[in-house]
Amino acid sequence: MNINKVEEGIFKVLMKTSTLLVLVSLFLIIYSILQKGLPSLSWAMITQTPKGGFFLGKGGGILNAIVGSLYLAGGSTILGLFISLPVALYLNVYRTKTSQFADFTRLCLDVLWGIPSIVYGAFGFAIMLLIGLKASLLAGIITLTLMVIPIMVRAMDEVIMTVPKGLIDASYSLGATKIETSIKVVSKQVLPGILTAVLISFGRSIGDAASVLFTSGFTDRIPTSLMQPAANLPLAIFFQLSTPIPEVQDRAYASALVLTVIILLISILSRIATKKFTKHKSLV
């Protein structure tokens, strides 16, 4: 009896400590990046492209990487949405007939979600060689799109699944066709879900390096066409850190801070989107 209480007490302490440790690790990461990155962050860093000898410590900034990352993430998210939204709708509106099929699709998508991004990178590279594409913004966007499709479909799917079946039936019984139902009822209900999916996928693709390593190339200039190579933030950070010159390494920390801030903003935005959605749900 008493031993039980002692045991429970010990484990309670362990449980609280673990939870604290998990949280502290997050704060520690953000704190380190802030502490190291803030001193070397400057206006020039985020408004200029690298000047000659940037990686040797000369002037310039990482605007090329920032813009490149935004292009890559934006492009893949838009392209991904065009592919994912119909899939998510298909899985849900036609779910009564082919629920086993829908289940299998979901399983495949979940598995795809878990595939390491470096594998997407290698696969993207193989496709590039096959169709004779050079390392470019376009190749990077295609690779990232493949990577975000499962994320976007499942994120939207989870939300659409929570749309009450009765609502869909009600729309049918009013004489609406399936297409109309998909578009009118479901889309309205899941708009915040789509927003969440977009934000998650944007965050994921802006932070990913391994998949664009082979495919998007790296350049000091801001790309002006899809066929030009494009830099991105994670690789810029990585390359700057790999140099032996302290000032350049400091800039890597500053670049990391920029990336972290973008990611945190996206996190907060998607929290707000989800919140809005749950508010709707409680009304239904």
Partner: peptide
């Protein structure tokens, strides 16, 4: 939400840390 934020942090940031 904090665990969600942790999930969103890119791997290069983990590397730097």
């Amino acid at each position: 939400p904090l665990i969600d934020i942790l999930a969103g942090i890119p791997s290069v940031i983990f590397g730097i840390w």
